[in-house]
Design a protein around this nucleic acid. Structure first.
Lengths: 342, 342
DNA sequence: GTTAGCACTCGTACCAAGTGAGTGCTAACC
DNA sequence: GGTTAGCACTCACTTGGTACGAGTGCTAAC
């Protein structure tokens, strides 16, 4: 572990670099921070820090820049925790629709507000419903060959799915079918669905006199409603902010990031996270090579006792980790007015 | 109107500039196009074209570049129509899910495929359901204070809306309420909904003995399901392509475009278009000043006799109008395999 | 262990000259 | 009168050379 002075110097380099995007020299540190030693001493310490891999020199006569390892140490041990800025707290409170019944709107608002407050890019995804338990299934015939299925889960998520069949039943039959399906599937999750359920459904349909050929498309629809990625919304906000950072003046880099942020699949991979903690991924730690010049800070966000979505902030490696973690912390903890208030 | 030679020269300038992004000189035209005259003559003609405002000179000793007016003339009268490239036709055919029952997927696929084929940015929106007529309304209680409403229109669009009430009815009552609401509203569109309907509903609810206090939230929900912009999906694809064009190497310009493409509202404004024709908006003709350096080609796309969504292609002013119009033309005409085949 | 001093490095800004693509104009040509 | 060759001129861009300055590493003295 580093001694106190080296730690101070690393902190100075990281925080100055975050603010200025310019390599930091020994004299700058000597002047700006009151370490009680001369620039020459700081130079010696910096040389050590470089040997240890915490900082880098872009070229032999320039100042130092933090390495991924340096940022990592900074984030894990050195970084001071910032309190949540009062204006930001107010802004977040006002900007986020606190209507738990419009999860989609809420997630969109969260992404928007967080990207606005941090001036990075925010990505948020609705909660997955894979694990939710089926509470109610409702079928409504749409025309001769299609039924609309509405599926409600124990956690109040509502999903639609079109069911295409060779011959749709009439309203009355569809209604009774809804009751039967609800009885059969109530309490099951997408992960529970298997041949057993199909068999049960087929048996019951035959028993009552429903068309057994409907079972297979219905099962598929139930599964799709709960497990299809198409049924998950991902909200991105503040992509243009990326273009403000000098590190992305290189259009190739900007392209890589914008391309990644455009793909729902890569965003879902990025967001996937079950940790209860706020997770920080720094530069090269990203599995997605397109994000090698970015850092990602992500968290599971709890909306109420039932729902939790995911949010990630994406910015340059040189991002204000402390601020972002503070903002996410406030939101993660609990998305209620009173909690953001504290 | 321009004489034949001037037209040829304008065509040469525009098409060369589209291909190269470099100002075109008289000698280049003389060499590359067989006009049977020398570069000096072409110079004289170009001078005339500049006086007429069709071309511009970035600086006094450079070649010429088309002006917005020049592009306009090119698009309206000069441009040769390209046939749809065979590979592209195949690609479009394969890439677009032809499942009319998944409009959302289809619009997403259209945007993706078109942006891929053209290498510009594509934006597509689902059809609006404002004008659709209500065919069926289904209510399902979710908990004590909420019902999920599923609304199906005559054109088979399915919309969800949560209805928050002080006391939700049980399943049976919700079912009967669904029948009543369907009877009351069948055939009405969002634009028809007015006080009259509210009055009728209130009267009928009182008659049957339903809780009259539910009428107002129900009416709001019906309206929101049909008319809320929140219920329209907009798909953007190929934003990163924008960053490939040298005209957007200036990060300020790139930022303006990316920012606009991020905002659902501005995209909906951009897409709004009832013309049956393919519409071309060139550079400064854009009402949105953020898109002053872009051209937009948009069209209403017909999916089948019922549905039509909107699509727009956004690229630099120097875009390949002919190619894009050909591609859109193929899709606009009719989104069925057989039509794209032709 | 700390520091002052100094030589050295290297990116950047600046400048001047050269290059070349392109123009406009003029006078001659068909 | 339209066309063309020729020529002077413009201007962005490249190249190379110089100066600058921020910053370093090393050394010797404190």
């Amino acid at each position: 572990m580093l001694n106190r002075r080296k730690t101070k110097i690393l902190e100075a380099i990281v925080s100055d670099y975050i603010a200025s995007a310019e390599p930091i020299g020994s004299r700058t540190i000597a002047k700006r921070y009151d370490l009680g030693v001369s620039s020459a001493t700081i130079r010696n310490e910096m040389s050590d820090l470089e040997d240890m891999g915490y900082i880098l020199q872009p070229h032999s006569s320039s100042g130092r820049v933090p390495s991924d390892k340096g940022y990592r140490l900074y984030v894990d041990r050195v970084m001071p925790k910032k309190p949540l800025n009062k204006d930001h707290r107010e802004y977040l409170k006002r900007a986020i629709a606190m209507d738990v019944n419009r999860i989609d709107q809420m997630m969109r608002d969260v992404a928007r507000a967080v990207s606005h407050v941090t001036s990075y890019t925010a990505v948020a995804a609705e909660p997955l419903v894979r694990r939710h338990k089926i509470q109610h299934i409702q079928l409504v015939p749409v025309d001769d060959y299609a039924m609309a299925m509405m599926l409600i889960t124990d956690l109040k998520a509502v999903k639609n799915q079109m069911v295409i069949v060779h011959q749709a039943p009439n309203h009355g039959v569809a209604g009774r079918m809804s009751v039967e399906l609800t009885n059969l599937f109530k309490g099951a999750s997408a992960d529970d669905l298997c041949e057993l359920f199909t068999g049960m459904a087929r048996h019951r349909f035959a028993e009552i006199g429903f068309d057994v050929r409907l079972v297979s498309p219905l099962m598929d629809a139930v599964y799709a409603a709960l497990a299809s990625a198409d049924n998950v919304q991902v909200y991105t906000s503040g992509m243009k902010n990326i273009l403000d950072f000098p590190e992305f003046a290189d259009l190739g880099k900007a392209r890589a990031v914008v391309g990644t942020l455009e793909e729902k699949e890569s965003l879902l991979t990025l967001l996937a996270d079950n940790s209860e903690q706020i997770t920080v991924i720094i530069g090269g730690e990203n599995e997605n090579t397109m994000l090698r010049d970015c850092s990602v800070i992500k968290a599971k966000i709890r909306i109420n006792e039932h729902f939790s979505g995911n949010i990630a902030i994406i910015g340059p490696t040189r991002m204000d980790y402390s601020q972002v973690m503070t903002v996410l912390g406030a939101i993660v903890k609990n998305l209620t007015l009173s909690e953001i208030d504290r």
